[in-house]
Design a protein around this nucleic acid. Structure first.
Lengths: 112, 112
DNA sequence: ACAGTATTTCTAGAATTACCGAAATAGGTA
DNA sequence: TACCTATTTCGGTAATTCTAGAAATACTGT
């Protein structure tokens, strides 16, 4: 993953409104949620919700599938996985030899 | 973790410049990096770097320790761990029973 | 105290973003 | 076709943010 794409995804999650949207989709699992259901449960203006969904879609974090007149939104779990991996993948690689790893006792990278 | 704090940390990582700063510190491990070393390797104006470091510090993602005239910056690994946990912690909890979990074959939550 | 290096604060302009109401579009159905 | 529901696009305002040069501050060593 390139830094620009990772930043785009992190920025997409960096506003409370969009983070709530995303977490609702994470909670929903593979069933996803309709735009209308999101709008009702989060209580934000339809145009605002649409705007935020677009941001999340462009970043690749979520996707939509049309079912008749409703649009089902789903979190893209692979994107989240890739993003987390990107954040921790180079953990400690520049660290001098012989020092204790920062990653213990709660390692964020598999090599530490 | 509250949504506002998580969003603050994600937003802090959501600009390429700050993400590069953060990743440099992740790579540096527990030794950390001086502000001046960051400035030289990333080639950004000192005032801009200072501004971004402040954002990262306020969000809790990094911290600084003074060593004589230089300030050593370090990534706060626990914060990253908490943030990742927050993102995936409620994965699939609203999902209907009987459906296959989205979390396979690359689970992002330990329960799936 | 003074000089020197390291870093932050101040200031300001350009650019981006959030937000929402109103109008427009997409798809389904009678 | 005409209508209905679901969702997006448009238009505009207010607020935030990025960026960096110049000045100010923090700390050390002499």
């Amino acid at each position: 993953m390139k830094v620009k794409q990772a930043a785009s995804q992190l920025e997409a999650l960096g506003k409370p409104t969009r983070l709530e949207i995303y977490r609702a989709l994470i909670r929903a699992g593979e069933n996803g949620l309709a735009v209308g259901a999101l709008q009702e449960s989060l209580n934000i203006a339809p145009s605002t919700l649409s705007h935020h969904l677009k941001t999340l879609i462009i970043s690749g974090l979520i996707s939509q599938e049309r079912q008749a007149t409703t649009l089902i939104c789903r979190a893209n779990y692979n994107s989240m996985q890739d993003l987390v991996n990107y954040l921790v993948s180079e953990c400690c690689v520049d660290q001098s030899v012989g020092t204790t790893s920062m990653c213990k006792p709660t390692p964020i990278c598999k090599d530490c």
